[in-house]
């Protein structure tokens, strides 16, 4: 069985390793597919749906779809861009995301993605949900207002930290992150460092990095991926 397969992304042929997801293969070839839940070192769950692409005409989350030979993948189209924007706008509308005073601003993947996708207003009505802040941990601050339920922290706690310090509870719009209390969350846990937004933060670290030196101050999200192949750029 061959170890590599060939597929096309937006008409361009690329090679990928068997077992890779379409998202991973695209990134390796310098094609950035916007995403919020997938993280290279974690198992992808397809939770955020932002990495939606069309594969042989079918819509699918590229982070959970494995590569196979001859696939025709569409990443960049007006329709897909619109879908991504809608998903990101929904995330903004359903939480309480106040960038101006959020310490994650400039390092936040949700904010960076909104900038990259050109979202300057949200088409959906803001829900302004009543959500709690959990500050009981001595070193970790959890702000449910900003949680987008991507599941990175839950996944990291289970499979990287080998704990079940964090889990989801509730269903539908009542779903939320919870500290299980079964084992202690530690400030050094992977689960604490993978949050794409400002929902899980180490306490007393805020605003220590000056403006102009934050992660997305100079380059948009995805620029690092695209630098691997300067000819390709996805909006």
């Amino acid at each position: 069985m061959p170890e590599e397969v060939t597929l096309t992304i937006d008409g361009k042929k690329i090679t990928a390793k068997i077992g890779q997801s379409i998202l991973e293969a695209a990134e390796e070839n310098g094609v950035y597919i916007p995403h919020l839940c997938a993280l290279q070192e974690l198992h992808s769950t397809g939770a955020c749906r932002v990495c939606m692409v069309r594969i042989d005409g079918r819509y699918s989350a590229s982070c959970t779809q494995p590569v196979s030979d001859g696939l025709q993948v569409e990443v960049e189209s007006d329709e897909l861009l619109e879908i991504r924007k809608m998903i990101v706008e929904m995330l903004f509308a359903e939480g309480n995301h106040f960038c101006p005073c959020c310490e994650k601003s400039g390092n936040c993947e949700l904010q960076a993605l909104a900038y990259r996708l050109g979202i300057d207003s949200v088409r959906f009505p803001y829900q302004f949900p009543q959500r709690e802040v959990d500050a009981e941990h001595p070193d970790v601050f959890i702000d449910h207002n900003r949680c987008i339920l991507c599941g990175r922290c839950v996944e990291a706690s289970r499979n990287a930290d080998h704990k079940t310090a964090l889990e989801f509870i509730g269903r539908g719009k009542n779903k939320r992150l919870a500290v299980t209390g079964i084992v202690d969350l530690d400030r050094a846990d992977k689960a604490v460092s993978v949050c794409p937004v400002g929902a899980i933060l180490l306490k007393r670290q805020a605003f220590q990095v000056p403006l102009g030196q934050r992660r997305f101050d100079h380059e948009p999200i995805g620029a690092e991926v695209e630098s691997r192949n300067p000819e390709v750029r996805t909006p």
Partner: peptide, 13 residues
């Protein structure tokens, strides 16, 4: 209810 380190950035608004 907000953490104290957020206050200098928040109240200036």
């Amino acid at each position: 209810g907000r953490p104290y380190w957020e206050v200098p950035v928040l109240v200036q608004r």
